[in-house]
């Protein structure tokens, strides 16, 4: 592998440096939490002060900071329904209760929530990316095992692999996830969250995530098996013969000769599978996890704002573009010999 070619990417690098520099400057000039909340109206402040003395609090204080812009809102529940919103940008604080400022504020807030900022890893874009990458990783591993099983000369092994692939491709992922999350613990008498220490408040999300990952990986394995199988079978028969004539065993032939050559041929299909899973990740709503799609749907139903889908699309596209680029690099890396 050659060292990174700086000359070839000069323009891109300069652009990236400028963007990063601008972001840093805007980020530094962005008003912080204190600045935004110092604008709180006296009426709202009164409610906040009242909260201090009571256990049932009434005011929700939100502060979202997103790179170059910040947003804060205060809203009260109960009889005194009030809300105030502020946006901070370039050293200035703007009241954001209506008009364009409100839309900007909403966008910041929606984006913040969909990215899963200020939440654990099993939330929003973090959940989507984590679930998707881990699924593809384990899916490809499992798929390779299944593909080798399916093309194996051992009939039983081939049958088991085929049956597995048939089952997982022939049934919906949503139901597979239900079975893993609800049915399996019901039968065997365990809870997913008990896999994590009881002291861990987020154990319930981690448990659900584990169940989702298992279901996703089992499912993706079946699809990846077909990808790996067709990649292996696309390798020239002469490669097997040459390896055999040199005395290499089946295992050596596969791991040293055939699979390394197959990888490049699988990448476009694995990349497709990745994008499919990225979108399928929204199915985790069914086991109480919140990915990008679920959060945007929730915001839509609870606030009736259809604007939420714009940042959602942007987030998906950024993720897709980033991983598309990554797969492209991997493919290039594996085709240096061509």
């Amino acid at each position: 592998m050659k060292a990174f070619d700086f000359k070839k990417y000069r323009k891109q690098i300069i652009a990236a440096v400028i963007i990063v520099a601008v972001c840093i400057i805007l980020g530094v000039l962005k008003p912080g939490r204190e600045a935004l909340l110092s604008r709180t109206s006296p009426e709202m402040q009164k409610l906040i002060d009242a909260d201090a003395g009571s256990s049932r609090k009434r005011v929700t204080v939100t502060y979202n900071s997103l790179l170059v812009i910040s947003y804060a809102s205060l809203s009260s529940s109960g009889a005194n329904v009030m809300s105030e919103r502020y946006v901070g940008f370039l050293g200035k604080v703007y009241r954001a209760d209506e008009g364009a400022a409100r839309i900007v504020g909403q966008m910041v807030n929606y984006t913040y929530r969909m990215l899963g900022c200020g939440e654990n890893l099993m939330h929003g874009a973090k959940l989507t990316v984590l679930l998707t990458t881990l699924t593809v990783f384990f899916g490809v591993l499992l798929g390779t095992v299944l593909a080798l099983g399916k093309i194996s000369k051992r009939k039983l092994l081939a049958k088991i692999s085929s049956a597995y692939i048939f089952f997982f491709r022939g049934t919906p992922l949503l139901i597979q996830m239900f079975v893993v999350y609800f049915t399996v613990p019901g039968i065997f008498g365990f809870a997913w969250r008990d896999l994590f220490p009881a002291s861990d408040a987020e154990a319930v999300y981690k448990g659900a995530f584990t169940a989702a990952l298992i279901a996703f990986a089992l499912n993706s394995g079946a699809y990846c098996a077909e990808i790996v199988r067709s990649a292996i079978q696309s390798i020239d028969k002469g490669q097997f013969e040459a390896a055999k004539a040199l005395g290499m065993s089946y295992g050596q032939t596969m791991t040293r000769i055939i699979i390394p050559q197959s990888i490049r041929r699988m990448i476009p299909n694995v990349s497709n599978e990745f994008i499919m899973i990225l979108k399928d990740a929204s199915l985790v709503f069914a086991i109480s996890l919140m990915d990008i799609t679920t959060i945007s749907k929730n915001i839509m139903t609870s606030e009736g704002s259809y604007l939420v889908f714009i940042p959602a699309l942007v987030i998906y596209l950024v993720i897709t573009a980033f991983f598309g680029f990554l797969f492209d690099r991997i493919e290039k890396r594996f085709s240096v010999y061509e």
Partner: peptide, 19 residues
């Protein structure tokens, strides 16, 4: 039927080392 993903030297060395 050379191994395309290996260099000339690796092609020649592969079997003696592995087998």
């Amino acid at each position: 039927n050379l191994f395309p993903h290996k260099t000339v030297l690796q092609n020649v060395c592969e079997a003696p080392i592995v087998v």
